[in-house]
Design a protein around this nucleic acid. Sequence first.
DNA 1: CTGGTGACGTCTT
DNA 2: GAAGACGCCACCA
Length: 113
Amino acid sequence: MVSSGSSTSHPADDWLQSVWLLVKLIPQGKVATYGQIAALLGHPRHARHVGRALRLTPKDVDVPWHRVVGSQGRSVFDAGTEQAMIQRARLESEGVIFNDRDRINLKIFRWQP
DNA sequence: CTGGTGACGTCTT
DNA sequence: GAAGACGCCACCA
């Protein structure tokens, strides 16, 4: 059966699937960075593409995107935006502590596969 | 093809 | 430590 590329699978889709799959592995109460996800997938300099993949995540796919933050343990969203507040609320409800400067201590909360 | 853009990261001031 | 410049690369007008 299908051996070579299924007409329905596009290289870009493969990337999206890989990102979603990995992000799903982040346990509750832990976070990962975009760069970390990219590196784990074998593409150290594709942090932005991880973000793109998460942005394209369909609603019917359950992916804990809120557990992915910037390299400084800070949300990449501007404070005040809907996304930023949802992310913070969900993380805090999982036990993640935010700094007085809205920062997460990666030494403690970073996911280590 | 060229240029602008983006759920990022790193280096330099 | 904050802010700006660059780097990276897929995508789109």
